[in-house]
Design a protein around this nucleic acid. Structure first.
Lengths: 139, 139
DNA sequence: CTTGACCTTGAAGCGCAGTACAAGGCCTAG
DNA sequence: CTAGGCCTTGTACTGCGCTTCAAGGTCAAG
């Protein structure tokens, strides 16, 4: 299987496949006489795994750490569990941040409905967005 | 006021101030005889505004659009309202995405508790992360 | 024999909001 | 006179996951 066929089979670009190789998520493939990369079904499964892991929000670095274990013959399940837990923690932290931001935005919107633009002075720039005592450090 | 004093007053770095100038969020300041930038209290208010707007999740491009209106003598309140609405929409969309991702991760974690690592075959890479029929396109 | 679809490599660019570094000028205190 | 703490400019780098471009080689069909 050539790189284009592999890419089509998994639904990624050929550049992405080469990128995964550069980043050592994919092993250097065997080459045909013409220098073309040659892949087997394992490569399809491996890229499918990468994409699924990505859809769970894992980074390529984390995914590589899973693949590295597997390649060294270690069953990566425990490590994967840890990564999932980490990611879950991050996602929940992020959701809490966004919830706080949402509340702030709702308040700003309410404020914008209450305030009259005619009262908006030059020094304020815009009175809807008033300087907070403690600016929240989000995102 | 020199750039360092301005930066200290608002709690940003001098590089950030110069960056805002380059990005046209801050006007080119007057210069002292030595070439040093000289700022007044308006500059403090302006940077404070930028930071507050940032804490509401607005991008610098959006913030610049607000400042541009104000600088042209237009009261930017209506535009600010629109930006806040846009941002609120984006935040809510993102929260929904993250909620879906959280559910996916919880399922993966449950799965990892149910499955025995000993059953994890080489072809799978890891049986916790199984290829989905329709990989969700998140983040 | 040419066209076009595939493949190769390497380097650069994207978005975003800065940070970091280098090489130098200015100013004050000791 | 020198040390240090400011300031100036310009350039490059950060993270992340690619995409885009350039310049060329390979191969099958017509």
């Amino acid at each position: 299987m050539r790189i284009g066929e592999l890419a089509d089979a998994v639904g990624v670009s050929t550049q992405a496949v080469r990128y995964y190789e550069r980043e050592r998520l994919m092993p250097a493939p065997t080459r045909g006489g013409n220098g073309y990369r040659a892949y087997d079904d394992q490569a399809v499964a491996r890229i499918a795994f990468i994409r699924t892991a990505q859809s769970a929000g894992l980074t390529l670095v984390q995914i590589r750490s899973i693949l590295d274990l597997r390649d060294r013959g270690v069953i990566p399940c425990d490590h994967v569990s840890d990564l999932i837990d980490d990611r879950l923690f991050e996602v929940r932290r992020r959701m809490a941040e966004l919830a706080a931001l949402e509340e702030e935005l709702v308040q700003l919107r309410d404020r914008s409905e209450r305030l009259d633009p005619a009262d908006c002075s030059d020094g304020d720039i815009c009175h809807i967005i008033a300087v907070q005592p403690q600016p929240s450090v989000l995102e």
